[in-house]
């Protein structure tokens, strides 16, 4: 069996390096949401590598790229417009009732 083509081999190596990086960084305490942002940023990088080189998206016809973009665009609609509610919704504190913390109900063994 002939050796794999170099671009594919390099992509694979880059994917594994990114995997090691994201795993390591996850254990480093960072301020605020930095851990998530970095982890998802690395995931985006990995996904782009797979899309571009394994799935050959960058060499694909415009139509194919449009189909790929459509899925992501509509996903963005779902998240962005839901956010208009979730980011601005206030949970009112009525009387002594605390905001839900998830601790009120002990599910027990079911």
């Amino acid at each position: 069996m002939k050796a794999p083509p170099l671009p594919l081999l390099l992509t694979w190596a880059a994917l594994l390096a990114l995997l090691a990086m994201t795993l390591g960084l996850a254990y480093v305490p960072m301020p605020g949401p930095m851990n998530v942002v970095l982890a998802l940023g690395i995931s985006v990088a990995k996904a782009l590598l797979v899309l571009a080189l394994f799935m050959k998206l960058f060499r694909a016809p415009t139509l194919t790229r449009a189909a790929a973009a459509a899925g992501l665009f509509w996903l963005a609609i779902l998240f962005a417009l839901s956010a208009t509610d979730y980011l601005t919704r206030k949970v009112e504190h009525v009387g002594d009732l605390p905001a839900p913390t998830g601790s009120e109900h002990q599910p027990g063994n079911r």
């Binding site: 994201t22 996850a26 254990y27 851990n35 982890a39 998802l40 990995k46 996904a47 797979v50 899309l51």
Partner: peptide, 26 residues
């Protein structure tokens, strides 16, 4: 078939940090 398989891989690329890497620095 390859396209499909790569997509399944991409889904996992996102599931991995969302599931396994949460709260590791805590």
């Amino acid at each position: 078939t390859g396209l499909y398989w790569h997509f399944v891989d991409i889904v996992w690329i996102f599931l991995y940090p969302l599931i396994y890497l949460v709260g590791r620095s805590g």
